[in-house]
Design a binder for these strands. Sequence first.
DNA 1: GTTACGGTCTTAACAGTGTTAAGATTGAGC
DNA 2: GCTCAATCTTAACACTGTTAAGACCGTAAC
Lengths: 226, 226
Amino acid sequence: MPKDLNAVKIGRSRKRVGAVTKESKPYHHGALREELIRAAVEIVEEAGPDGFSLRAAARRAGVSAAAPAHHFGDVRGLLTAVATVGFREFADELEAVSDRQATVIAVARVYLRFAQKRPGMFRLMWRTSAFHLTDEGLYQAGLRAFRVLDQAVRGKATSELVGDLSLAPTIAAWSMMHGFSALAIDQAFFADDPAELAQLEVLLDAVFSNLDIAKKAASPAPTRKR
Amino acid sequence: MPKDLNAVKIGRSRKRVGAVTKESKPYHHGALREELIRAAVEIVEEAGPDGFSLRAAARRAGVSAAAPAHHFGDVRGLLTAVATVGFREFADELEAVSDRQATVIAVARVYLRFAQKRPGMFRLMWRTSAFHLTDEGLYQAGLRAFRVLDQAVRGKATSELVGDLSLAPTIAAWSMMHGFSALAIDQAFFADDPAELAQLEVLLDAVFSNLDIAKKAASPAPTRKR
DNA sequence: GTTACGGTCTTAACAGTGTTAAGATTGAGC
DNA sequence: GCTCAATCTTAACACTGTTAAGACCGTAAC
């Protein structure tokens, strides 16, 4: 096996943990977990959850097909990490707009825009059978997003997501913006209208004018705990 | 090949188109298209769109893996037929409740109940990348369902689904019930509440009390064209 | 400084998937 | 009775996720 020996020589001579040159291929990647997540996020954004495959992610990261198993167990483990990334960035965008304008309609616009710009990620985030829904990091990221919405609707944010009827107004707004966004990227509206993207925001505003809460004045900017 | 000859003999002797006994296995199925759809519907109901496979449907129908290709082209063709069945039965239920009580909240309850009782079918119906969205039968069935909703909200029904802002109230109600149902079966509410199913209808009512249109009095029962 | 250990990754194999080409079967029309 | 076209099977292809066995190699113990 001269090929293997050669690869080992090269790997050993250049190997430095955390500082590996691109052309060398050391046996140990060093930061494979992060790179696999990065590769998986890319694929999900490009091709959606259905176009994703564990082997394709491994190929993009430059490792064998069996490599991901050690870090994530199975494909659901990796997709859990991907969905967590998605929810974190989702919460980031919601918090960003909330700092400027804490209204329901402003939150709804961000919600829709996220779904429009990153439909693959958006679809994965709500395909709860594709990852581990009980993951703690995932739950925390989702809760962060929900708190922004709850703040915009009720003027205060819950500490936990429990079956409380006082959350009904928030869930009403959530259902409306989620349903609208999901239906929009699934081509339910404007079956053959090309100028769809621009019209959707106009339609969103018209839709939310039918929601009681959206008509209220904007609540004062909250002091959010990070 | 004595096995084949035997099978042929039996098949030939008992063969009658449209009246084939269960134990005989004639080369030509006779009604394979319908049986494949039936088998595929079963699998989707049991395991959802992700648990579905073309080969499993073929096995359940008792034919080879390549048999479906002739009738449906590819897997998306078969799933188009399945989704069409789903939308037809969905429209049936909506029309049934509409004949008794043509209110938005009544429609919303049927919407939620369909998603709860048949989550696999519901998920397929809105996974528009899994089938041919442009299929005519599918579109007509979807339009039938939309008309019921439009009638309940505006008191009249559109002939076509176009980008018309006058449809905003209907789309508002649609978005809300769709988002609520989708989030509900995706475990977004009551993360760990066991008595979830019963509570969901209560929550649904509370949620829809935030919608302008839902507060109006019920419109008179429409005379629907079939 | 050598050695043993354990985490990391590869190779190889397995059963399963959708799709396709080539061929077998057979009902129906001439 | 023959031919034809529709229907279905067999076989193969490339792909998938998962697993077991083993190769590599940093690190910690001695």
